[in-house]
Nucleic acid binder design. Structure first.
Lengths: 242, 242
DNA sequence: AAAATGACGATTGTTGACAATGTGAATGAT
DNA sequence: ATCATTCACATTGTCAACAATCGTCATTTT
């Protein structure tokens, strides 16, 4: 299978690639992008091995670009490279999931406070749209979970990008994707989606009011709540089949 | 110049390499380690270009391992790779320095609170030793700045490693090294070193008391103060020769 | 039977040559 | 003099072959 063309704007690398470089995508980047999507969507399951030759024959390129792609994915936290032993799709233990949500929580709190401080009109506009969309989807019965999670993801990225710090934005982005499958788990019930959406609204109000301190508190709470819910589901699933 | 043997334990990669892999170091990792030390020590200045062939001839290896080394250093934030245009030593703008210190601040606060929560006897012991050392050095007149900064670095890492989260630990570690040169700047006056050391003591007391909330507050303050001081010095230097 | 050993196969690490691209100097036009 | 164009060169991107290493499994040894 040759590499399929992907829209650069919707590519996960578009967000993290430093400005000033070439606009074309290297083979390694293209492969990384497609593998990343597969991993995030769950086509590669955690713990699964990723062989260099398998990937290179799948995309019909040599191992060079594949190795680069794997390094990029390791940077994103999506795979783990064991020296001399190959790459595996990153598998987070329950403790690690808790830790990553805790990190996401404080970083997102920081981002929210910065957004509240900056009061960028464009960002605030996108925030309103995002919150409206999430609330609408939360109320929709039998909503497509992927669509809802996608809307939440977009909203999160508006917050982090709106913080004005590319470092912060990239970290939030990366950590979000690392825990995407667990976020999905936490948003699987409609009831939880409704309360979550309501909290997004509260956070938006606080940001619009320019309350920097409260924005940080609510931002942190939004992610830590999400993490707590994910952990609950995770433990349930764990008890069923250990 | 062939690659000089380095002690694995003191290697920057030792902290971030996932467990379970080989114990030997690939050429790319060895090169990354040495380049990292050079960059952190200031032998490569921010903005300087890092040519693949130059590095490969310097270490007498082919470009393959060099490319891997550069990817590793990019992951650490020490260099920035512009696609098709090469790598440069990461140069942070004043705003970026402020942002990174803000991120370090919230992450270190999280780490401090976790340490206060866990109350690991071994960690607390190392913490006491580290704080004692920093205080002793702070009081020493004409202390070697590198030695003092090294002691602060060690202490920081005990905190982050003591948090029990490898993710958090790695992020704190990486961000610390990215801003090492600026931290040095902030600790260049003896007066500042004394107040900083005193605050480390306060933080330690809080941690020993198990005050999770206050530990987070003081942990954040410690880094944000450090950042504020660094920013002050940075602006002074900027005004002298813009 | 259990543990140690050794060879084999699978996989990653490394290399040097070749291809593709961006940079900047030299050239020419306005 | 300034700006656009061209073209050579420097540099990174890609490839396929070779080397080194690790895990496996049959074999041997106790």
């Amino acid at each position: 299978m040759p590499i399929t063309e992907t829209e650069p704007r919707r590519n996960f690398l578009a967000a993290i690639r430093p400005p000033g470089g070439s606009e074309t995508w290297s083979l390694g980047e293209q492969i990384a992008s497609q593998l990343a999507d597969m991993i995030v969507k769950g086509e590669y399951k955690p713990g699964a091995r990723v062989h260099e030759v398998a990937v290179s024959s799948r995309f019909q390129v040599s191992r060079g670009p594949v190795r680069e792609a794997l390094r990029l994915l390791e940077k994103e936290g999506l795979i783990t490279i064991l020296p001399r032993r190959g790459a595996v799709v990153t598998k987070l233990s329950i403790d690690e999931v808790r830790d990553v949500f805790a990190i996401r929580s404080v970083l997102f709190g920081l981002a929210a406070s910065r957004v509240a401080e900056l009061q960028d009109p464009q960002v605030l506009r996108e925030l309103k749209q995002g919150v409206a969309r999430v609330n609408k989807l939360a109320k929709t019965k039998n909503v497509d979970l992927d669509e809802y999670v996608g809307a939440v993801q977009e909203l999160s990225f508006v917050f982090s990008a709106g913080s004005g710090s590319s470092h912060l934005s990239n970290m939030v982005y990366s950590l979000f994707r690392q825990t995407l499958r667990y976020s999905r788990l936490g948003l699987s019930s409609r009831e939880r989606r409704l309360t979550s959406a309501a909290n997004w609204s509260r956070l938006l109000d606080t940001v619009l009011a320019g309350d920097v301190v409260q924005a940080e508190i609510l931002g942190r709470k939004q992610i830590s709540d999400s993490g707590a819910e994910a952990m609950r589901r995770l433990r349930e699933a764990e008890e069923e089949k250990p």
